[in-house]
Design a protein around this nucleic acid. Structure first.
Lengths: 251, 251
DNA sequence: TGTACATCAGTGAACGCGCGTTCACTGATGTAC
DNA sequence: TGTACATCAGTGAACGCGCGTTCACTGATGTAC
């Protein structure tokens, strides 16, 4: 009885907020869904995505494995939710880091973006692998993951857009090296989606910086740098500056 | 009886070659070991490394799964053998491609190296993932894989060594931008192992080119380029040239 | 406000699958006298 | 050359494990009159 009263009270309170009409059941469902995601994430963080097991998640939550099917129709859907979360966390971090710098300090914003992404990757290696590692076998990323993935790229898109508007010299310098036809068209397509108004040659260099950034992080994280060549933060910072130069960001 | 005669004859023949003293059993063992590797490789190529299963390999070979333990002490040892093979195949391809160009055409050798590595990766995506993808969970690469991994890097090491010796301008140009202390020490260590005599600033740029190369290939192969930004060969070629410029290779 | 019915969360058992690895064993191949 | 013994490849059964997913069911929560 106490329990019922409690729920009714909470229901009334939540009706006052914007979740109007939420029943106790709805709220319980939302919370348990969250708990499942959290526990699944904990397992991915500990053992990697391939090891994610519905049964283990259910076990940790004191549920029976079949109960999870009330919340996620399959293991793959749970994985998809985690992937979306990872993209969101990464891009939120990058956005915040970039926003913390003066709007006109383009090189500083680029640095902040790189550091934030690397920092997040080092802190969450398995989540990073989940979104930028080799694909999980048998899992086909559904279309829902495309938008969150784009949000990460948009951080850089906005940055270069701002820089090009503020400093026409960037575009001018890049234009002196025209691109082969097909690449120019590709770059234009990218510009339209991510950085309207930025000329193709600049975009091409931004793409180089982009692949450099994730390439470095992946090689470092996955330990594929032959022992001797492991890039600590020093190499990362150095490469970041070189890429800023390549993109033509003012010093 | 016929069978025995046959074997004795073959044994005699092989004693004439450098595999002296090889018994029929030894030769059978070598061949079956090869067949196991080949079949395992076929499975990795088809389904990825995580899906490699001793039982499936045995099944394909018409053996019973426990028989494989005569040849490989565990699944991990089989994986290790495949990893070594993959490194060897990749580096052999890169070496051949580089060797096919005139020794003094440094930019051409660099281009050939990049194209060979990308070509091999596209042709053998799962094997590429095996060596440059996110680590297989639960598998710890043993020390035997270090040397073959280094062989790939050595291709680039020899190249830049040659270039620096032939064209002192490369080193001179790079020296104008000194490195932060720790990075210089790291680069010197890399130089000592891979490219003796090459100054640290050049090495730092080579490392950028190196991470760029594998970063591009990984992002392309693993499909993590947000749909729009997928790098066909055009982008790859463009980036390759930019990296040649960065390293200071003469045009 | 009270009752009858519909909805839904969670249970527990089961299905069917595949895996890596061990072990006692048989029979063929190699070796030493 | 012939025999006795040691080595080794391959067999078949078993151990113990974990997984994703389905299904009929119970009991609590929500809804409509």
């Amino acid at each position: 009885v106490i329990c019922v009263t409690h729920e009714v009270t909470a229901g009334g309170a939540s009706q006052g907020s914007r979740g109007a009409g939420l029943t106790a059941r709805d709220r319980a469902r939302a919370q348990i869904t969250r708990e499942i995601r959290d526990e699944a994430l904990r397992q991915v963080a500990a053992d990697g995505a391939q090891r994610l097991s519905l049964r283990a998640v259910a076990r940790s939550l004191g549920m029976v494995s079949s109960a999870l099917y009330r919340y996620f129709p399959s293991r793959d859907d749970l994985l998809t939710a985690l992937i979306v979360d990872a993209y969101e966390a990464l891009s939120a971090g990058a956005e915040a880091a970039v926003a913390a710098r003066p709007r006109s300090d383009f090189r500083g914003r680029w640095r902040a973006c790189c550091q934030a992404i690397r920092g997040w990757a080092l802190a969450h290696p398995h989540e990073y692998a989940l979104i930028y590692g080799s694909p999980v076998p048998g899992y086909q990323a559904p279309t829902e993951t495309i938008a969150p993935a784009g949000r990460v790229a948009a951080v850089l898109g906005v940055l270069i857009s701002d820089a090009c508007q503020a400093d026409p010299a960037i575009a001018l310098a890049a234009r002196r090296q025209p691109l082969p036809g097909q690449l120019a068209a590709q770059a234009d397509a990218v510009a339209e989606a991510m950085a309207p108004g930025v000329p193709a040659p600049v975009i091409a260099r931004v793409l180089i910086a982009w692949t450099q950034l994730f390439g470095m992080i992946s090689l470092e994280l996955f330990g594929q740098l032959g022992g001797s060549a492991r890039p600590g933060g020093d190499f990362f910072g150095y490469a970041t500056e070189q890429m800023a130069d390549l993109m033509g960001l003012p010093a």
